[in-house]
Write a protein that binds this DNA or RNA. Structure first.
Lengths: 216, 216
DNA sequence: TTCTAATCTTACTCATCAGTAAGTCTACTT
DNA sequence: AAGTAGACTTACTGATGAGTAAGATTAGAA
């Protein structure tokens, strides 16, 4: 998204920093942390390498800045969509749709957050683990609510089960990002619909002819 | 799994090659393709670097050899478990259990197959894509059978739906690999049981108190 | 025993890239 | 108009690591 035609205009630090992070996100997503070259990031940001070091400190710092900013964005998008409403199924629907919409629109963010070998350094491993945990925590929260709501009866499900389901859902969603790339026509709602049918209704019942539809 | 005490015994190429691939798998899984250092692989294999190049050609060739061998192993394990029987649910249960068992026993294989940024080179991207496709194809096959079996009634599900479900299942399974690391006590069967309840029965029904049990 | 092919080694080269030194330039203040 | 702080650059250094040249060693065949 960085312009090409810009005639080397000087920009205030706060703006330039964001542009550098934009560029870094693209390059990290395309090449992976280790193969990404800081010079390429600088070029893409329309700037020279020492600026990157002046503002972000190091390649590691740059990567961590990407993770922080994009985690924030993703969690916000999810939370705003899933926050409203009362019915657990409806909130899950809204949250997942926001997720798929976000990933379709910001594929690089997702790739950087979830498709990196985390063992590049202690700091990066910790940062990525925290990022992934916080994304998953959003889902775990929703599922936990669903369990609390539905568990008046014979069910004996706890936090642990919510966490299991969150792992499975996030993993499925991650993988479905690839499926989306193979089916560019499919809107995020379509993906969510299929996933809700699979997990919420259950494949057995789906095979028996049952379908789920979004509330309203 | 390579010995430490070996007094620099000479080994025939066929054996040494496998030991090199063993070592490479561990290092690639631990560090990622780019950060992995060939000298470390050689050390771990109890050999010097030129042997690696003599036998495997290049770092890229070494990586591709890992992918091929481990894909083969995983697909074989899955196919043998899921091949027998008639009931789709039973075969899915068996296949998934084999999968989780395999990943628990060969975590490095899975990490190399599914946790690498594929854009290191044209050849690696192609090889990884093929590997992932072939793993997923096993699942797609099972689901497709299930659909064909169950689709006497009102259901209008096709190959496309099977592929969607396969994506979601493989992604969920991948993520559950992490869950397993957080719950070392849980046997593969336990993980499969939870996943079957979630996808086969459906979360809504599970919340309503229904549970799935493995046949027999 | 002698020869030979396969196994294996030490000791390099050379490209790449993270990080920096030592400034220059320009917008804005006073 | 002069001064200054912040934006920006060119041109390096030093480490790391893929790949190789040139040959040493040993298991077994003849």
């Amino acid at each position: 998204m960085t312009d090409i035609d810009r005639p080397r205009r000087r920009l205030p630090r706060s703006v330039r920093e964001q542009e550098i992070i934009d560029a870094a996100l693209r390059v990290f997503a395309k090449r992976g942390y280790r193969a990404a070259v800081v010079d390429e990031i600088a070029d893409l940001a329309g700037i020279s390498k020492p600026m990157v070091y002046l503002y972000l400190g190091s390649k590691e710092g740059l990567f961590i800045a990407c993770i922080r900013r994009e985690t924030q964005r993703l969690v916000t998008a999810f939370r705003e969509a899933a926050g409203a409403g009362d019915d657990p199924a409806r909130r899950l629907w809204a949250g997942l749709t926001a997720f798929f919409g976000f990933v379709a629109a910001h594929r690089d963010s997702w790739v950087v957050l979830h498709r990196q070998a985390p063992e590049q350094s202690e700091a990066i491993a910790a940062e990525l683990a925290a990022a992934r945990r916080s994304v998953r925590a959003e889902v775990t929260g929703l599922i936990g609510d669903g369990i609390a709501r539905g568990a008046g009866g014979a069910v004996h499900l706890g936090r642990d089960d919510a966490d299991f389901v969150a792992h499975a859902l996030v993993g499925a969603a991650d993988s479905l990002t690839d499926w989306m790339e193979l089916h560019p026509g499919e809107p995020p709602e379509g993906v969510t619909l299929r996933l809700m049918n699979m997990t919420w209704v259950g494949m057995r019942n789906v095979l028996a002819g049952e379908v789920w539809a979004p509330p309203r």
